[in-house]
């Protein structure tokens, strides 16, 4: 007995080495039973936590890429929306190649085009947003621009080969038409007084309109620039205009102009036709 203990004591390291090796090989061979091994669940928990932490960092670093992918997907999805197609009130259609159709034969009216914001200002009186997409990528002048949450950003005023300049709502000359969501008859114009970014003025609203603090203001859809129902902002304060019989309403813009990253330009595929018609009507009157 004593000799055995002496042997073990003398060769303890070698025996420990053998034992550990055998245990390792046992683990390798019984890989599928590993999940039953003592402590493996515990190790899984620990490594899982470390992996999670790493994943947070990794995700942060991949944010740009995933944003890009989401933007692409959003653009594609928005273009599938039924509200972008309009059915003319007649069975007889003149088919031209310039306007695409969906599978039901409806004419496309609105086309969303994703664009990245490369430059943006909020501090001056006349603010512009510059987009990294231009005429070479099918952007045109006078398209409306919204942010990813459907908040109105502005209207494209200049287009070059690869860039477009958007006159943001925070511009002294910016003027778009809006209506109250709760009272579609209460329409008016959205302007900016040049004082506070993210706060706009909604003027020429008749006093009979049912306007409350917190109500939503939407685009009216009567201009060819924006479709109906894009959110402009939320009513913050309502003042009566003493010189006229109208309200002046201060609204908080839906788009946050401080951190615009991606926007969508909305092309009205029927705008040319509308404009041609208007020209024709005007020339007739002038003659």
């Amino acid at each position: 007995m004593r000799n055995i203990f002496l042997f073990i004591r003398r060769y303890f390291n070698f025996l420990l080495f053998l034992l550990l090796q055998i245990y390792c090989i046992y683990l390798i061979i019984n890989y599928n039973k590993y999940h039953q091994a003592v402590g493996s669940a515990y190790m899984n928990e620990i490594t899982g936590r470390v992996n999670k932490q790493y994943n947070i960092v990794d995700n942060f670093l991949q944010l740009n890429k995933s944003n890009e992918a989401l933007k692409k997907e959003n653009e594609w999805l928005r273009n599938q929306l039924k509200s972008n197609f309009e059915n003319p009130d007649t069975a007889n259609q003149v088919i031209t190649d310039s306007i695409p159709f969906d599978t039901l034969g409806n004419k496309r009216k609105w086309l969303y085009q994703a664009a990245k914001v490369v430059s943006n200002s909020v501090t001056t009186q006349n603010n512009f947003v510059v987009l990294n997409r231009g005429a070479g990528q099918q952007l045109r002048k006078d398209e409306g621009v919204i942010d990813p949450n459907n908040g109105v950003v502005g209207i494209i005023t200049e287009v070059s080969e690869n860039f477009a300049v958007v006159m943001s709502l925070l511009h002294k000359d910016s003027r778009i038409s809006g209506i109250l969501k709760n009272d579609p008859l209460g329409g008016g114009s959205i302007i900016w007084d040049g004082k506070e970014p993210n706060y706009l003025s909604f003027i020429n609203v008749r006093k009979s309109a049912r306007a409350k603090k917190g109500d939503t203001v939407l685009t009216s859809g009567i201009t060819p620039t924006f479709p109906y129902g894009k959110m402009i902002g939320v009513i913050d304060q309502i003042y009566p205009d003493k010189s006229t019989n109208n309200f002046i309403i201060k609204i908080k813009s839906a788009a946050n102009f401080y951190n615009l990253q991606y926007v969508y330009a909305i092309d009205n595929a029927q705008k040319d036709e509308i404009n041609r018609l208007l020209e024709k009507a005007k020339s007739k009157i002038n003659n």
Binding site: F12, N13, L16, F17, L20, Q21, C24, I25, Y26, L27, I28, Y31, Y34, A37, S40, M43, N44, I46, T47, V50, N51
Partner: peptide, 29 residues
């Protein structure tokens, strides 16, 4: 003894991350 136990712990930790138990523990020991 301590060296071997630590080496086993090291290898086993990496194995746990890789979900392939035994390989690195054996080599480290």
């Amino acid at each position: 003894t301590l060296q071997m136990v630590l080496a086993f712990a090291l290898g086993f930790t990496l194995d746990s991350f890789r979900h392939s138990p035994g390989f690195h523990a054996a080599a480290c020991v």
